[in-house]
Every structure is written in structure tokens, then in C-alpha cells.
């Protein structure tokens, strides 16, 4: 199975993957490649709630700091502590090991309407 199978992507380069009723959020391989060496991540607290489009995290490469936006509305139920300690994991594995947060969402099916399947996303950014 391809790593990008079933994921949905936003035009601001976040990806969303539904797994067991929760939604995994991360950054696409394209976004990571553009950013270069990732050196710092600031993730939200568990329990924090965000609406679609809101900034929920910050990522810093050697060059600059960038904001990460919620692709859907929801509540943070899990964060990836490993990437906070070792941000370079994102460069190595943006999909498998380099996910950022898991959320619970009541409105994901509506919120994800404007998200793109990976192939369409690649075409959009090309």
C-alpha cells in the first residue's frame, strides 16, 4: 500500500488520514521538501480544540518559521512526542513516523470537502 493512499491534502500542505475513527494530521512530503531541514516543532496541548483553518502548530526549518493550519475542526487527542524531540523525523518519514497530531472531529466529513486527494494535490501544486 502506498503511503499516500487515502490521504487528503490541503492547499496549505497539511494532510489528513482517517484511521479508526480518529484523524491523523501531518505535513505533505512536498511541504517538507520545500522547508528543508526541520529543526523545531511546537505542537498544541492534548484537549485543545481548533476550528478548520486555525493555526494549531508551528514548524521551523533552518531558514524560517511557518504556521500549520487545521485542515478540519476538531479536538487534539494525541500528539507525536517523538517529532518534538527529534524534528528531523519529518524529513525522513513525513507520513509514517512524522505525523503531528491525532484529532477527534464531528464535522470532518463536511470540513474535508475542499481537501484534495494526493494525486490531485500534486497536480495542483505542480
Amino acid at each position: 500500500m502506498s503511503l499516500t493512499e487515502g490521504i487528503l491534502c490541503s492547499k496549505s500542505h497539511e494532510y489528513l488520514l482517517e484511521k479508526g475513527g480518529k484523524y491523523i494530521i501531518g505535513l505533505t512530503d512536498y511541504a517538507i521538501e520545500q522547508l528543508g531541514d526541520i529543526v523545531f516543532l511546537e505542537l498544541p496541548d492534548i484537549g485543545a480544540e481548533f476550528v478548520k483553518g486555525e493555526v494549531f502548530a508551528t514548524i521551523e526549518s533552518v531558514k524560517a518559521a511557518s504556521e500549520i493550519y487545521m485542515p478540519i475542526s476538531g479536538k487534539i487527542v494525541e500528539i507525536n512526542e517523538a517529532v518534538v524531540d527529534n524534528p528531523e523525523i519529518l524529513n525522513e518519514s513525513p507520513y509514517e513516523k512524522g505525523w503531528l497530531v491525532k484529532v477527534e472531529s464531528e464535522t470532518a466529513h463536511i470540513d474535508s470537502i475542499d481537501l484534495l486527494e494526493y494525486e490531485d494535490y500534486k497536480e495542483e501544486i505542480a
Binding site: G36, D37, V39, V62, K63
Partner: peptide, 9 residues
Amino acid sequence: PVSYSSIID
């Protein structure tokens, strides 16, 4: 050129 491979490298 901003980078060829990785800035850190």
C-alpha cells in the same frame, strides 16, 4: 542557490 541537499549537511 539556497541549498543543494540539506543546509545542515
